[in-house]
């Protein structure tokens, strides 16, 4: 059972899992970061309050967040086919993963940015800062530790989702676990892939926490 093809398959599984997780998280931030910023700015008490924009974003996020990932995966298959050309494999899984990650990211970014003290924002306004300067330098700059912790959480979640995509031939470690463990009753292979998944999540957590601590100057000794 543990021949070369198996090892190659596992290594490819790890590679595909990393690929799906990181690329989807990246595209998730491309969509979710501006959403989170917009939510923060337009909420009442934000620097450019706008009830309509906030409500629309709020509803879009709530609705998309309520769709279970497995259903989203099937629901967006036509879109996936349109973008990637096929609806299975790791590249195809990136489409639903991104769509699932974006609203989660929007919320995480919103909550991180709202941690920034109102006083610091007001100080920047009193200096005559442009809104863009306040967003990048004050909001993102001051919330960077919290944002980075958010990235770590999102990576873990997206990795979990990517494993779920294995059910429909999504590729990666989850795919292997389901094919061998569920369809062929080879529990050994499934356990090995599981160990890899746990190890990867653990690794990302450690790196993320370390980086967040390194970047935080608020309570230095």
């Amino acid at each position: 059972m543990w021949d070369e093809t198996m090892i190659v398959m596992l290594l490819e599984g790890i590679r595909d899992t990393f690929y799906m997780t990181f690329v989807s998280t990246f595209f998730g931030y491309v969509i979710g970061l501006p959403m989170g910023i917009a939510l923060t700015l337009t909420d009442k008490g934000g620097i450019t309050p706008n009830r309509t924009v906030y409500r629309i974003l709020d509803i879009v996020i709530n609705v998309t967040r309520s769709v279970p990932f497995l259903i989203l995966l099937i629901l967006v298959m036509p879109l996936t086919k349109l973008i990637v050309g096929k609806s299975y494999g790791s590249t195809a899984t990136i489409v639903p993963l991104t769509l699932a990650a974006a609203p989660l990211i929007g919320r995480m970014v919103e909550s991180s940015l709202k941690e920034v003290s109102q006083g610091v924002i007001e100080a920047a306004i009193s200096m005559g800062a442009k809104t863009s300067t306040i967003v990048f330098k004050v909001l993102i700059g001051e919330a960077r530790t919290s944002l980075l912790v958010g990235v770590t959480i999102v990576l873990g979640t997206v990795l979990g989702y990517s494993a779920m995509a294995g059910v429909v031939g999504g590729g990666g470690l989850g795919d292997i676990a389901i094919r061998y463990g569920y369809y062929r009753y080879e529990t050994g292979v499934m356990l090995v892939t599981l160990i890899f998944i746990v190890a990867i999540v653990q690794l990302m957590q450690v790196v993320g926490t370390f980086a967040a601590k390194k970047l935080d100057h608020r309570n230095q000794e």
Partner: peptide, 19 residues
Amino acid sequence: RLRRQKIGMIFQHFNLLEQ
């Protein structure tokens, strides 16, 4: 915005960029 650049303000809680 430009006028504010010439009106400085200091605060009770200093409001410095902590990072």
